[in-house]
Design a protein around this nucleic acid. Structure first.
Ligand SMILES: [Mn+2]
Ligand SMILES: [Mn+2]
Ligand SMILES: [Zn+2]
Ligand SMILES: [Zn+2]
Lengths: 146, 146
DNA sequence: TTTTATAATGCAACTTAGTTGCATTTGCAA
DNA sequence: TTGCAAATGCAACTAAGTTGCATTATAAAA
């Protein structure tokens, strides 16, 4: 019964989160939050579009992603692929943040645990505020299937 | 006379570089190399287009940037802006690389000296190969004019 | 429960960055 | 000097994301 309830529980959690942020609880938003909670890696627009039960409009989805990012429900990641990806948790706009692992083989983006520390040498006059780290290599899945 | 010759010297250097890489010495390529050598920060397509004496075609410029990157004359940088920027020097595709500083105020991208070391903890099974670091903050220019 | 105001959605048209196919031109080696 | 592969220019295309606006749904008030 714990397992059966899990879906409903995360749905309830999503609703609470939306209320906290002052956002209306639409079907799409609840499903999005649920999806972000269970996703093992960062999601592209296409990933999300395909994961949604009902067909979602492009602008609606992008607008919700923008809104979610603004209120700190998700953060976005830009690897070198031209496709933005999104994952659960606030944007690391100020101070520390976690690193992202981008698989060279499957292009999947993973959020890493821990935080990248801000200890880089910058030239005189420059004021660093935040560091974004992208680690490239092979993910566990691609590495094992070689 | 040293100063007067500088233009010609870097031009000659560019020609040598192109020959080394097996690329034909066109006016645009020579001018591009000269420009990259004197640029104090990473250059967008628009920056480069405007810097060229003659009007350059979009595809020609982009194709040259791709070629230059392939042969290691330049590397490209993706900040969070959607506009790729380019700077002198080989792409840090394998092993270590330098960090990039992106100014939050003027969006200028600077190549930092030194190399980012590969000392991140990744999950079991993941094989890191290379790290890309973007430092955000204010550049010396924007910081001084506040 | 019904009404109402506001926020969210859907659709189409647009933008921006970059790419591709192809005919023409140019650099350079023979 | 000539021949040819490589480079260029043009136009048309693509992919990702954005914008304006009319319609619809959510949530609070009545
Ligand atoms: Mn992340
Ligand atoms: Mn650089
Ligand atoms: Zn992979
Ligand atoms: Zn600046």
């Amino acid at each position: 019964m714990l397992v059966q309830n899990q879906g409903k529980n995360t749905e309830a959690l999503g609703k609470v989160l939306l209320k906290e942020k002052g956002l209306k609880q639409t079907q799409l938003r609840i499903e999005l939050i649920k999806h972000f909670n269970s996703a093992m890696h960062a999601q592209s627009y296409t990933d999300l579009k395909q994961a949604m039960v009902k067909d979602v409009d492009k602008s609606t989805l992008y607008r919700n992603l923008a809104t979610f990012e603004e209120v700190g429900l998700i953060h976005s990641i830009n690897d070198h692929s031209g496709v933005t990806k999104y994952a659960k948790g606030a944007s690391p706009n100020s101070g520390q943040s976690h690193a992202h692992f981008v698989c060279d083989s499957c292009e999947t983006v993973y959020c890493m645990k821990g935080k990248s520390e801000l200890k880089y040498e910058v030239p005189q006059g420059f004021t660093p505020r935040n560091v974004q780290t992208i680690i490239r290599g092979n993910c566990a899945h691609c590495e094992s299937s070689r």
